[in-house]
Design a protein around this nucleic acid. Structure first.
Lengths: 169, 169
DNA sequence: GCTGAAAATTACCTGGA
DNA sequence: TCCAGGTAATTTTCAGC
């Protein structure tokens, strides 16, 4: 997979990471390129798959989702059909906002958003524990989500790639 | 904090969650409201804080960030000044894309994105372990990020709120 | 990749329910 | 207070270079 992005593409992606609704014109002013070219580049980045999605981050608390957890899940039998059926299962559970297949002391790490403690308890008992084949559920309640919130750092990407390409020669 | 969103606001937020770059006109067609009113509502939702940010989700792998981990951190002394200095610390570390203060067997859960295993190792040794006061670091390598990807479910929010409001009377 | 015109979208203002 | 319509301003798209 060739890396064929230039400095302008990377700057463009940086701005889009910060604000997905920025106009092509505003970007054009910041990276010194015509609005036209900015639009074309954005479309190209979308088509080639560099941009996956534009999402809106909502204030969960104000929307009555006051509880967030990371819940570690361990399956009883870790064969591939069980792994796959669990992955398929989580797709249809709205409370699960992210699902990560991990190594180590858990098989999966789920990010879960619920209204409150009672709602989470109901979810555990009536939804998650209904899935056979779970041996362990361990909840990390999120007390505070903070710091970071970093988008991925693209500023040093170009030089890094240059080094990688050199190494390949 | 009064909950003064109506069905239209919730539908609007749902569409914005899926696609932050959707135009007011496209939303207007979907929720049967004039483009004009849609714009006004979006602005109001931004001002009142229901909308936190519009972000672009990039393809990390294509941008040479092939490794993701969740790394559990345990501090030696859990007093408030140590907690705060750790939170302050993570703000300036670009590899840390999210930081969650949690209860249980870790104090913090960090989501980390790195180029590859070597890069992650360098990060652990040269950056994270440089922070005094860490007693335990446990890495969950993300083998696969899948399923879910759910935005928060707003479809049943209205009825839920009605119930809550009833309960308060 | 740029320019310039046409098309589409958004912002603003006013009236009406 | 909230919504619709009309107009102005901005932004995006498309053609030609």
């Amino acid at each position: 997979m060739p890396f064929n992005l230039d400095e302008l593409d990377l700057k463009l992606l940086s701005h889009l990471q910060e604000n997905a609704r920025i106009s092509a014109k505003d970007i054009s002013r910041k990276i010194h390129l015509s609005p036209n070219s900015v639009s074309i580049r954005i479309k190209r980045l979308e088509e080639r798959g560099y941009i996956k999605q534009y999402v809106t981050v909502l204030n969960n608390t104000m929307l009555n989702r006051k509880l967030m957890t990371f819940t570690g899940v361990r399956l009883i039998h870790n064969n591939s059909s069980n792994l796959e059926s669990f992955m398929e299962y989580v797709k249809y559970v709205p409370e699960i906002t992210s699902c990560y297949h991990v190594n180590g002391m858990f098989d999966f790490l789920l990010q879960i958003v619920a209204t409150d403690m009672q709602d989470y308890r109901d979810f555990l008992i009536n939804t998650l524990a209904k899935f056979d084949n779970i041996s362990e559920l361990r909840t990390f309640f999120v007390l505070n989500e903070m710091g970071a919130g970093h988008a991925i750092d693209l500023t040093h990407l170009r030089s890094k790639f240059k080094r990688d390409q050199k190494r390949m020669n």
